[in-house]
Design a protein around this nucleic acid. Structure first.
Length: 283
DNA sequence: TTGATTGTTACCGG
DNA sequence: TCCGGTAACAATCA
């Protein structure tokens, strides 16, 4: 069970990070309590006063039974749950043992027999009660990577919404795990304008979105990167692709299919890239 | 040094 | 209630 590869939020918007440290022992927690709980997200769910208790509970614990849902990781500990969310830049960094002195913002150090992991970056890392876990879990939508995912539930939410599909894809309570890069690439590949409303999509279009999302997230999980392009077209295996070869529309000045200038705009407070020709607006 | 960011939440107003 | 926009958070990178 060691090194189960699980997906989590990370700098690459929902792809896998390093192998997750399951079956290892927490050796150290950050001394800088304020830094640990710096983010608003953490303040909301973890009052600072609880840190000391949490840190004590964390130290020396064995991490076991990890599972991912969307961009969240959960380690079960009997009645409580360690919740980790890697945010924008968080990641698990793997070391051999003994690991070097921690550098930068190391939140958590996990030590195994032959390897160690540092959790660093502005990440969520908190201990949740059963009720808190249930509450968080209930706010998450279907994760296309999970065996128990039910696309019907996602379809109900999307088909009843007047929001743009470009918004809905980023909404973790609709589909959990899609980030800004995936949303741009998914809509581009399907020729859908990001402004098309959820309730304007037909079932066939939703099925295409779901299937493509599953496929892309699986590739991302496997290669630890968001990879959209076909390796045959690029002429090298996926593991060797560089960043400009992996994507089709995100941050591209010109459409990689028709060479039209890519339209860059804001949707859901995030930059969205779309091709005015390949993704026509709907009347 | 500066600005942007592959993420999320709280809050406010329509 | 639903929906859109904005601010805040903070490490990292160009």
């Amino acid at each position: 069970m060691i090194d189960a590869r699980l997906r989590a939020t990370n700098p690459t918007a929902g792809t896998v990070t390093h192998a997750m440290p399951e079956g290892h022992t927490i050796h150290r927690v950050a001394e800088d309590h304020n830094k640990w709980f710096a983010g608003q997200m953490l303040k909301a769910s973890s009052p600072q006063g609880r840190f000391a208790d949490g840190a004590k509970k964390l130290n020396g614990k064995l991490l076991y039974r990890v599972h991912a849902h969307g961009k969240h990781l959960f380690y079960e500990w009997g009645d409580s749950t360690l919740h980790i969310h890697l945010g924008l830049y968080g990641k698990f960094r793997r070391h051999k043992t003994p690991p070097p002195e921690p550098r930068g913002a190391v939140r958590l150090r996990v030590i195994g027999e032959d390897r160690a992991f540092d959790l660093n970056g502005p990440t969520a890392c908190e201990l949740l009660s059963k009720a808190e876990f249930q509450k968080l879990r209930s706010r998450l939508g279907e994760d296309p990577l999970r065996d128990d995912a039910d696309p019907e539930i996602a379809w109900q939410k999307i088909s009843r919404s007047r929001s743009a599909i470009g918004q809905l894809l980023l909404n973790q309570s609709v589909i959990a795990g899609v980030g800004n890069v995936y949303r741009a690439e998914i809509l581009f590949l399907l020729g859908l304008h990001p402004s098309v409303k959820g309730n304007e999509l037909n079932r066939r279009e939703f099925d295409d979105i779901w299937e493509l999302t599953v496929r892309l997230l699986k590739i991302g999980k496997r290669y630890n990167k968001i990879i959209i392009t076909n390796p045959i077209d690029v002429g090298k295996p996926r593991s060797k692709m560089n960043s400009s070869e992996r994507l089709l529309i995100y941050k591209k000045p010109h459409c990689t299919v028709c060479e039209t200038a890519v339209h860059v705009w804001q949707l859901a407070s995030r930059k969205i890239y779309s091709c005015p020709v390949c993704q026509p607006e709907r009347a």
